[in-house]
Write a protein that binds this DNA or RNA. Structure first.
Lengths: 195, 195
DNA sequence: GTCTATACCCCGATAGAC
DNA sequence: GTCTATCGGGGTATAGAC
């Protein structure tokens, strides 16, 4: 039990706990019993709120992580007017989360998405929607900064993907450097498209 | 049983089968029994060759994937003299593997590395070494193409990381487009560093 | 909605004959 | 080195009282 245990409703606690555990361990290694224990919820209650079990709970957790990271990303992007500087701000934020969690808290959905690839369509769909959502936030930022419309979607896609790859590298390397480098390179790439 | 079953020694068959299964399912979802069955090897033989069990086998599988992908990468890079064109050749190759496997065969070690993050140091170490190895191949290519030494290592790092992120996106999206876009952007970024 | 108890299955790992 | 058999535990999921 932690502070989350007391302030939220049972369903919310389950989703949030599942999201955090799957971020760190992935889908298969995260058990329903572990979730119910850490959320301070009876096992039977899990099946009360999510009758079809683990997959349904995982989908809710991925959607939760989608919204949560979107909020973080939106705020980081809004803090800088220049879009290149905004990407660097994003890498700083990701690096901080990683370091402060002893290199455990990377992208909240990547492990789950990869493990269930081709096997659990509902989870795949939720992951697809999350990436699409995050891309759209970067695209908005680029558009408002005056990047030509024909470049916006492609740049946003590479920006999110480079963040994903650099975050994975940082997590495995226990180093903020891959993210710092990615920030500089993304800023340079975006600047090369400015008119 | 498949063709791999007959042409290789028992140990090699185990490692190769494990590598393929963990590429698609990750570490936790891949069971020792499944491995021994698909490799056509008795369960007890797994423990004969890998006395300390699943973790030891997984480390060997990650090292195998390291060497295997390094061979592929080296060949793709050697096929083009221009380093930007070489990166585009890499994205084409990754896209082909993904499409031809129904979007199942992405990076052979990412899922395993993420799932065991902070929990299985031996696997983490093997994954770290693999990424480092792949980066060094790209760095060689950039160096030979005359990129300034102070830019080589950083560019190689972002190149591998962007490939990783774009491959993840392609796998989740069931589309070659993220990789095509990444190839174009990486070529542009590298060209901006040419002297 | 939450409690306790449990069915049923598959996991990693091992034993001992051959 | 490979065979069959099995152990102990934990997995998901369910039943039925309250």
């Amino acid at each position: 039990m932690n502070d989350v245990t007391r302030t939220l409703g049972t369903r919310e606690r389950l989703v949030q706990t599942t999201s955090r555990l799957m971020q760190r361990q992935g889908y298969e290694a995260t058990g329903i019993k572990q979730i119910s224990r850490e959320a301070g919820v009876a096992l039977s209650s899990v099946y009360h709120f999510f009758p079809s079990g683990k997959q349904e709970l995982a989908v809710a957790a991925v959607r939760h992580a989608d919204r949560e990271f979107a909020d973080i990303l939106r705020e980081a992007l809004a803090g800088e007017s220049d879009p290149g500087a905004a990407m660097i701000a994003c890498t700083r934020l990701l690096a901080t989360y990683l370091r402060d969690s002893d290199w455990l808290d990377g992208c909240p959905i990547t492990a789950t998405a990869l493990e269930t690839s081709g096997r659990v369509p509902d989870i795949q769909q939720a992951a697809r929607e999350a990436f699409e959502h995050w891309r759209s936030l970067v695209a908005d930022k680029l558009r408002r900064a005056g990047i030509a419309e024909q470049d916006v979607l492609d740049l946003a896609r590479t920006a999110i993907n480079t963040l994903e790859g650099a975050e994975l590298d940082a997590q495995v390397s226990h180093s903020e450097e891959p993210l710092q480098i990615a920030g500089r390179h993304l800023a340079r790439l975006i600047n090369s498209y400015r008119r």
